[in-house]
Write a protein that binds this DNA or RNA. Structure first.
Lengths: 224, 224
DNA sequence: TCAATGCTTCGGCTATCATCGAAGCATGAA
DNA sequence: TTCATGCTTCGATGATAGCCGAAGCATTGA
């Protein structure tokens, strides 16, 4: 059963560490979970057998990543339930507010700012919800290439949708996932608007002073 | 952690039994999980503490139900992961094809037919996706009151959305959830188009001969 | 009041599994 | 080859937690 895999605290810590979309080595994950490499090795093979993570050999390192954005989605869902019922394993330290404001959800922007961005895109008709998925409008394509230098050609992927709504556990509303979500986050980083927090395993995204202004200019709404 | 609650086989069986949306007594759940009432009692209090289920006293019985459609959603998500990686705890008996065709997902129709229904509603513009939720169009309201005697007044609920897309683990596409999904399933039952399978705990929905025809007339598309 | 039913609490048993030390393989560097 | 690093396998230990029998409450019905 998948749930029992996620249920163990050590494994849950590892998975949480992988939620930022980066691949980590076995030793890094061991440290993240606070266990010895032997124990971690056992856990990692179980997670791999369960199809939750995927290894990639590189020299004498073994990098692990989540197999799929879907896995990240289910993990977010579980976190949402936990958050709602107040039974979170989370340390509500000083990092918490920053987490709620902006964080990495697998490979795209989540938190207050992520939700705000999707709202703005929707209100200005830059995206449209057709079928059950989100679609870029022509206006949206223009907007992206003009302001963020993202062409629609960059967004095609054989198995991953361009746009997708992803439920945000802290805001309990949707933010933008999919290829576009990833591409935009990537661009923010390139433009030095924002950077992932330096502390390893952290999901926090820090915006620079000017980055915040630019972001607000594009997607802002004074309040909230 | 929520996942560890779901991880235990006995508890997972109980939750699965509750996925059909009906409330079950503690003893029924004990039998469902194949354990004694004492053990079940312990599990149930843990699930309740974790906010996954909710009790309701009635005489000397204690009925339990899932607290929320969201809980059902996460459980479906986990089932989806398990199904995909082939690591399901499910007995792939003869019931499986029937399950994939039509089943109860908490309180609405899921499986092949559920997906087909949502597709049909969408194609005929009886629903529209505005914001991140589905909305009924005026045409849709007429359609419902005319063919299924469902008025929009029946669909308002303080905390539950009228329409919602729910990811189907067997089809990996969306079907219709929310108040409307529940109301429609309910109507199908009243009209004797379909009935829940008699075996206790089963999620299978059996359509009658005429029910299948009527359903196909409303939402059908020859193939698939 | 007495008895029956449904559920919970308590105590003790047992099995599972996470954990780590030590040893064994790989890979890469000198 | 020799050594160091990264990871895995093996074996033993220990703690957690599921499990049930017995007893204890609560509710219903006679």
């Amino acid at each position: 059963m998948v749930a029992s895999l996620v249920g163990d605290p050590a494994r849950a810590n590892m998975l949480t560490a992988l939620m930022n979309g980066r691949a980590l080595t076995a030793s890094e994950l061991a440290q993240e979970a606070g266990i010895t490499p032997q124990t971690a090795s056992s856990h990692l093979s179980k997670l791999e057998a369960g199809g939750l993570i995927e290894p990639e050999k590189q020299g004498r390192h073994r990098y692990y990543r989540l197999t799929d954005p879907d896995v990240a989605g289910v993990l977010e869902g579980l976190a949402g339930l936990a958050a709602r019922t107040g039974h979170m394993r989370v340390r509500t330290g000083p990092k918490d507010p920053a987490l709620r404001r902006a964080r990495i959800c697998y490979d795209h922007l989540a938190g207050d700012l992520g939700v705000q961005m999707l709202d703005s895109l929707r209100e200005r008709r830059l995206i449209k919800q057709k079928k059950q998925e989100i679609e870029l409008t022509p206006d949206g394509q223009r907007f992206l290439s003009e302001h963020l230098q993202i062409s629609s050609g960059m967004l095609t992927h054989p198995r991953r949708p361009v746009c997708k709504a992803c439920l945000d556990w802290s805001e309990r509303r949707h933010h933008l996932a999919g290829m576009l979500g990833a591409a935009m986050m990537n661009r923010f980083t390139e433009l030095k608007w924002a950077a992932r927090d330096a502390t390893p395993g952290s999901r926090v995204v820090n915006f620079t002073r000017t980055g915040e202004k630019q972001f607000a200019a594009l997607f802002g709404n004074g309040k909230d």
